[in-house]
Design a protein around this nucleic acid. Sequence first.
DNA 1: GCTTGACTTAGAGTCGACTTTAAGTTCTAT
DNA 2: ATAGAACTTAAAGTCGACTCTAAGTCAAGC
Lengths: 144, 144
Amino acid sequence: MKTYSIGEVAKMMGVTTHTLRFYDKEGLLPNVRKNSAGLRRFTEDDINWLLILDCLKATGLPLKEIRHYIELAKQGSKTLSERREMFIHQKERVKQQMEILNKNMEKIDFKIKYYDEAIKNGEENVYLKNKHLAEEKKRLFKVD
Amino acid sequence: MKTYSIGEVAKMMGVTTHTLRFYDKEGLLPNVRKNSAGLRRFTEDDINWLLILDCLKATGLPLKEIRHYIELAKQGSKTLSERREMFIHQKERVKQQMEILNKNMEKIDFKIKYYDEAIKNGEENVYLKNKHLAEEKKRLFKVD
DNA sequence: GCTTGACTTAGAGTCGACTTTAAGTTCTAT
DNA sequence: ATAGAACTTAAAGTCGACTCTAAGTCAAGC
């Protein structure tokens, strides 16, 4: 079976070899084997796992919860539903992140419109001249 | 004009008073005035700014770049287009974040389907039985 | 008048996720 | 055979964004 060196994998994943060794030390690379010379050899499965790890990290799961997930996986099929729950929960987190991102996008779009108007008028006092913007400001910038 | 104490604003914004003072110390609250007793009094405009600050933070702009934006704003209308550019750039960042989030959502959805199938079969060896999943795995988990 | 919460400066501590250093070993190409 | 890259380990250092402590003063509401 084809395997990859730590350097090759680092390049593939866009991280440094240091980071991969750090993950290994932290128990985040559960299956990576070492060859007779003590060098890590990564399989396709290891790389697949790194892609999941990346997904979990990118969606805000802390490394120690990722480690917990690994522990579950090691315990075999009796933890299948617990692992499923973890991904369901993560999906909810991602939905929330999307909502927040959409709201922030609206605010940023508003600010761009604001600056378009301000540049057109050569000054910042925009709300008196543009009632539409003033209304939008009210809608977007309020505290719950 | 109605003003708010640091404690009221902290509650509104869902942060601690420590954080607000930290922001002030770091030059991130440019207009907050203090009353005769030296207590901070936040205006509606200050709260509006905190909402923008929050938006910029949440979309990944570091505090020192936020400080830079404040510097620009202080320099008046000659920096209007530079400030507009900053928001245009931030909009691009947010678009990227959305793309990444969508891709990660697909991976998470895949994992949920994977676990649904594994639970149904009582074991993890799912790809032999479900060609559709095997195909989707190939599509979702590949390194560029 | 007492409790609660505000203020001040200055500095130390925390947390997560790396990142770098040091000192040594092994692989690959010429 | 030797240079230089890539590998090994353990441990210390960095960074951003808070978070808290200390030690003391001041003010508002009941």
